[in-house]
């Protein structure tokens, strides 16, 4: 259930402790990238039904940014990774 998230630092915590930013898939373009690239990054979303990656912020816990991989139809959670580890090519 997406009502309970296992934070890699704090363990299983209720959803109320988190603030959700949204899609974690788009990658920030270089500052001088084209307007089209920036428009796509800021505004356009795949928004698939099924498996997604989302940024969650553990505001009422360790205050780390996390990447939650889950299914947005069944609410099954597959993995929760610290966003820094994810950016460094860590887990998943």
């Amino acid at each position: 259930m997406a009502s309970l998230i296992t934070c890699p630092h704090c363990g299983r915590r209720p959803r109320e402790e988190f603030s959700i930013r949204g899609d974690a898939v788009p990658e920030r373009p270089a500052p001088a990238a084209s307007e089209e690239a920036w428009h796509a990054y800021v505004y356009l979303r795949e928004n698939p039904r099924g498996k997604i990656r989302e940024y969650w912020h553990h505001v009422a816990g360790c205050r780390r940014w996390l990447v939650v991989e889950r299914d947005n139809l069944t609410h099954e959670v597959f993995a929760v990774t610290d966003a820094r580890d994810m950016a460094n090519g860590g887990a998943a």
Partner: peptide, 13 residues
């Protein structure tokens, strides 16, 4: 519910 969802039911929080 704040997180993206295609399920027509929501969370208890």
């Amino acid at each position: 519910d704040y997180y993206s969802s295609y399920a027509q039911r929501g969370n208890l929080a």
